[in-house]
């Protein structure tokens, strides 16, 4: 991006890529939400139908996808707060880049233990208990 325009917030560099990621995570989470309301609606059909579908959420591959979902939601939430700060805080635009590093930092710090607890059962089931 050698020719990125200077003086605009959302074209080129971290400003644009954080915005692209906001759109991609937003679309992904929204489509999951459609599916998730549909699978939860099975509680109105029968306990067996609901438990059958929820069982797929507990399989190793879908369990891994859940880590991706939580990561996408967490980024979207943290970066959304950053966008709000850019829009409403008088010094927000000046610190937008620093705030993005804050978003990335908090994301990593939350996702490390989060991934551990989300995948613990799957890892134990696949490779045996760790303790």
């Amino acid at each position: 991006m050698a020719t990125a325009p200077v003086g605009t917030l959302y074209r080129g560099g971290q400003g644009m890529w954080s915005w692209v990621a906001q759109r991609i995570t937003g679309i992904s989470v929204f489509f999951f939400l459609y599916v998730h309301v549909l699978d939860t609606a099975l509680v109105r059909v029968s306990p067996e139908a609901y438990d059958l579908v929820i069982a797929t959420y507990k399989t190793p591959i879908v369990n891994l996808l859940e880590v991706g979902l939580v990561g996408a939601v967490l980024y979207h939430a943290l970066n959304g707060l950053r966008v709000i700060a850019v829009d409403f805080w008088s010094r927000g635009p000046r610190f937008q880049k620093q705030m993005l590093w804050g978003v990335v930092g908090v994301w990593v710090v939350v996702m490390i233990p989060g991934t551990y607890y989300m995948l613990r059962h799957t890892v134990e089931a696949l490779f045996g208990a760790t303790s």
Partner: peptide
């Protein structure tokens, strides 16, 4: 739903 107290593994109709 995903992290606390066993996460997704404990979710079923009775939980809901």
């Amino acid at each position: 739903m995903n992290i606390l107290d066993g996460g997704v593994q404990r979710i079923n109709f009775a939980f809901v």
